[in-house]
Design a protein around this nucleic acid. Structure first.
Lengths: 227, 227
DNA sequence: ACCTGAACACCGTTCAAGT
DNA sequence: ACCTGAACACCGTTCAAGT
């Protein structure tokens, strides 16, 4: 009885549920942001999802900024760490694809401000392992610094563009293309018209496919610098 | 007298000032966001800056989203267009540096959501000219699509990282380094410690310098694909 | 120790009213 | 036509009070 009291609480309406903790708050917040977007993530709505008043959340999170920082760190902690058994390029390639997948599953993550100012343990672990992979792969310290900056800028930027470009499915691409082709004077934007008609509208086109092309461009260039 | 009435209005407190228009609203909003950040840009505060009640702004802007879209387009319209007299690589390099400068002057621009959903004329002009430069430089349509995606992802992502990494000046870098070195167990994050001590703390270090390294990596790789 | 409910100082936006 | 002022439905967060 005593033990269950530590883990469960009975509210005045008679509903018994497990006690709240930081992890449950973060998980619920991430689910809410994934489903409805960052704007829909309010303390009141998060409380509702957790079956609790908004103010109860503040027992597990300092404030909204702390909540967002925790959410970001959970996303980073979820990215596949570079494998030690792969060569540096394969390992970094895999974790970059995993990185993008994470940002694609959690599109709000790129728009949380100051995600870099107070990195959590998940973010730091992720970064340190990637740096180690590059150093052990024979890259100089200077090139390692350049490489991680170039790779992560690309991954981050691609995820941002992908989020704001509604080209995820063939249907979405067709809608965008239709808007571009009917609303824009082709004479004024000839190259945009060409790209839309002959590239975006091609069957099977996916903007997502562009990701690996650019990634390999960057990785190959880094490999060349290394040698 | 009639003409001046079209351009000036006298408020009840006797202050005469020029009439508001969309451009003045956008300029003031950009100034506010540049100085105090996007969170500080509220309709009420913007009205205050313009010497007008918040609701008066709605005569020139449909809503806050429209305001933000207009601000973004003004920033894009300000980016140097690729020069026709330069070869494609030089032209794209210059406009990419100009692109980053613009995002650096207006850090809030990368955090405006859905900036890609309803691109304005400035954004479209910018994009079309860049596409034309690549096409006329001899890149295939497919490579042009890949190239613009890779370049702009990199520029966008670098600007985002730069914004959240407080490494703009040598002083800022020293502060970050100090925090990393004293707060983090070097045994747990050995590569991060190495990078901090031997790279970030080197005299003259600027994260901004990394930008052109990565940009040339991408541009050289595209040039190689072209040939 | 954990949760609640009222309250405060803000938001974006509406609407009717003024000039 | 343009601007105002009150009002509405929200925010994040405080604080004293409940259990």
């Amino acid at each position: 009885m005593k033990k269950s009291k530590l883990l469960r609480a009975t509210t005045r309406d008679g509903v018994t549920r497990s006690r709240l903790n930081r992890e449950k708050v973060l998980t619920a917040a991430i689910e809410l942001a994934d489903r409805d977007g960052l704007d829909s993530l309010t303390m009141r709505r998060l409380g509702e999802k957790l079956g609790v008043e908004a103010m109860s959340i503040y027992a597990h999170v300092a404030n909204k900024e702390d909540l967002l920082t925790g959410m970001i760190d959970a996303v980073f902690a979820d990215i596949e760490l570079p494998s030690l058994s792969d060569d540096w390029k394969t390992a970094i390639r895999k974790r970059s694809v995993s990185f993008r997948d994470a940002l694609s599953r959690h599109p709000w993550a790129t728009s949380v401000k100051d995600s870099g100012t107070a990195p959590g343990p998940g973010t730091l672990r992720h970064l340190d392992t990637a740096l180690g992979t590059l150093r052990n792969g024979g890259l100089s310290l200077a090139l390692t610094a350049h490489a991680i900056s170039a790779i992560d800028s690309y991954v981050y930027g691609f995820a941002m563009r992908e989020k704001s470009l509604p080209l995820k499915t063939e249907e979405e691409a067709a809608i965008v293309a239709q808007i571009l082709l009917t609303d824009l004077p082709a004479a004024e934007y000839p190259y945009l018209a060409e790209l839309t008609a002959n590239q975006v509208l091609q069957p099977g086109y996916r903007y997502a496919n562009d990701f690996e092309f650019g990634l390999d461009l960057v990785l190959d260039a880094i490999a060349r610098e290394r040698d």
